[in-house]
Structures are given as structure tokens and as C-alpha cells.
Nucleic acid binder design. Structure first.
Lengths: 192, 192
DNA sequence: CGCCGAGTTGAACTGAATCAAGAAACGTGG
DNA sequence: CCACGTTTCTTGATTCAGTTCAACTCGGCG
């Protein structure tokens, strides 16, 4: 189990045995059932998680509307960066879309790793940089593309989402109503 | 001039004299006239800049449409992260909205700083983290808020943009047409 | 078996885009 | 400093994509 975390770590940085153990040391296992929440709006997210299995979704509630920010799958990392970095209460909600096994570590423990092992400073940088790339992509999507184009892009670039997430969450992720996405889908089927 | 870069640097990390000089060493001054381009779509952005004075805008061209991604002002940092990190050609265009004085440094030089001085690894992380926060904010804006709400938010949170940037670019930044933004503005005026 | 949430479909409505014309502001050169 | 052309902004009429509201189907599950 924990070895898969180290493998994921090694995608970013080279770590020796001591460094790897230091990281394993700060991990705590967390299990979530489908529909359980990891964070509620107002909580302070002082931790990050590695997703060993399952699938997470974060969303905002705006005027009673559920707006999905992002989905995360096994072998991915998640934290509410905004709260994690600033120490302020989160404006996100995070829930499990499937049963999940997570390995979490606190910001405090990560900071102490930063101090002890420079390689984790690098790891932190690479993680943040990857987050930047993902966010830029989503920004472009919301800014440039029509609703239909967004859905087509999702199908080709993130088939996992289309396969495993229910339509209403996909719709809210793409910034539209479930009915609209449903219509887009029938329109696309008719084109084939 | 270059001292203002160091001040900006010190907002993120503590550097000693040697480290500061090492950073100054890799800087090159770049001047841009209003409307000049820093990067064109297809260029590889292997550098980042500190904006000493002026204002930059990056945008995408999609179906002949100009979509503004972000504005950057004096004392800010800019790079096309996507190209900078991946080494791939940029899909952005960057232009000066006002005459600019920039200090640029290449990725290669930055990487060598990373190696020599761990403090810059930290700097790189903090920069990326700040970028994440900005991008998350913009994502929320595009996902959650109505066109009018987006404009109101811009007025309160980034008055500089409203004061110094022409309406058509603001509109494209907010994901709407200039005509729509114009109507929103008259509507807001009538409410007062 | 019946309930419930998810997805589809239809009709009416609405906010934004489009197209077009005119007014205001801006910059450049005489 | 004015005159000109260009760009930016506003305004109006029309069109259209997406939302809303409501009804109905389907499939899973107690």
C-alpha cells in the first residue's frame, strides 16, 4: 500500500531510503465511504492526501447550486491549496464519489520535511507546478470553448471522468446544467 | 532598478548577499513598447520576467477570437508556465498594454540557481503556489459567478485592472463580449 | 412491489451574442 | 492646436444557446 505512495513520489523526485521512510512516517491512512465528505466548507484543510484508490470531487455551493471544481482519481494527490497554504477556512467541499483509501499528511509534517530534506522542497515545487498546469488547462476550457467543445475535450482527454462520474457532476464541472449536457450527448449521438 | 527585483524576491524568501547577487546576475533588462509582443503563439517560453513597470496581458486566439487569460502589473512576475515547465511551444500570446521595463531570466539559469542555492528551490515553490491560488480564484470566478458578479468582483478585488485596461480586454478576460460588459456597466450606473 | 435518484425530453423563457450604426476618445501628422 | 482617421465604447434590434420548469422513463434497491 504505502509503497504505491513512494512510487508516486518517485515520479517527481529521486529519494533515498532515509528520505522515503521519513515521508512514509508522516502518512496516515484514511478510509472514506462513497458520499462521505473529506472537508466541509469552513473547515481548515491543513493536510494533503494521496489517493490510493477511489475518486474524489471538490465543489462549491453557490446560491444553493453545486459547482464542481475538479475530480481526482487513484494515484493522484489532492489538497485544498487555498486553505492548505493560507491556513484560512476552506470554501470547498470534498466528497468521495467512490469508496476511497487515502494517505494523508499534515502541512506541519510536510514543512518539517522541507527543512530536513531539500529534496522535498523540490517535490513541493513540482507538485505546485503540476497543479498550475492543470488549472491553466481548466481555465482555458472555461474561457475559450463552447459547452459542446468542453464535453468533447473531456471525452478525449479524461475518459476516466466520463466513465466513472455521473452526468450531473460532469455537467457542473463543465459549467452547465445536466439537461444541457444531456441534450449535447443526444446531439452527438445523432451525428454518428 | 534591480534592487526592486530583490525586494520582490524578499517577499517570498530570505536571501543573503551572495544569493541575491547570484539572482541579479542572471537578469537581463527588456523594454517593451505599448502593443509590442513578448511572446507569440508557437514560441517557446524558456524565460520568466519580473515586471519593473508597465502592464502585460496574455491571451489566446480561438476561432479568430481574442481571449484574455490574465493581466500582470508592476512588481509582478510572469511566465507562460505551461511552456516554461514543459519546454513545449506556447499557445499564449503576451503583449504589453503599456510601455514596460522587464527583468527576465531563463529557465536554464534558474535551474542552476536551484542547484546552487536551495533557497531558490523554495522560491520556485512559493511562486508556483502563488500561481495556483490566482488560478483557483479565476476558475471559481468563471465557474460560479454570473457575468455581472464577475465584473463587480473585479472592481473590488482588482481595481487596477478596471482603471488601466480597456473595456474590450476586460470583457474577454471575464469571458464575455464588449457589448455585454458595456450593458452591464450602464445597468450598474442606473442602479446608483 | 414501490420508491427514489438519475437521465431524457419538451415548451417557454431569458440572458448573452450577433449585427449594425453612431458617438466619444485617442493619436498622429500637418 | 486643429483635423483626420482609427479605435473604443455605447445603444438598439434580432437571434440563439442555454436555463428553467415540468413530465416521463429507466434502473437499482430496500
Amino acid at each position: 500500500m504505502k509503497t504505491s505512495v513512494i512510487n508516486a513520489l518517485k515520479n517527481f523526485v529521486q529519494v533515498n531510503e532515509e528520505e522515503a521512510y521519513a515521508f512514509l512516517d508522516i502518512l496516515k491512512e484514511k478510509k472514506l465511504k462513497r458520499k462521505e465528505q473529506l472537508i466541509r466548507e469552513g473547515d481548515i484543510c491543513d493536510f494533503a492526501v494521496f489517493i490510493y484508490s477511489g475518486c474524489l470531487r471538490y465543489y462549491y455551493i453557490q446560491n444553493g447550486e453545486d459547482c464542481t471544481g475538479q475530480f481526482f482519481f487513484e494515484n493522484g494527490w489532492y489538497s485544498d491549496y487555498e486553505s492548505f497554504l493560507s491556513g484560512k477556512p476552506s470554501i470547498q467541499n470534498i466528497e468521495a464519489l467512490e469508496d476511497c483509501i487515502l494517505y494523508s499528511f499534515t502541512r506541519k509534517d510536510l514543512e518539517s520535511l522541507y527543512k530536513k530534506f531539500p529534496v522535498y522542497e523540490r517535490f513541493g515545487r513540482l507538485m505546485a507546478e503540476r497543479a498550475v498546469l492543470g488549472l491553466m488547462k481548466k481555465n482555458e476550457m472555461l474561457l475559450i470553448y463552447t459547452h459542446e467543445e468542453r464535453y468533447l475535450q473531456l471525452i478525449t482527454e479524461r475518459p476516466k471522468v466520463v466513465e466513472r462520474v455521473s452526468l450531473k457532476y460532469i455537467a457542473s464541472y463543465l459549467g452547465m446544467k445536466p439537461e444541457s449536457l444531456s441534450r449535447i450527448r443526444t446531439r452527438l449521438l445523432n451525428k454518428l
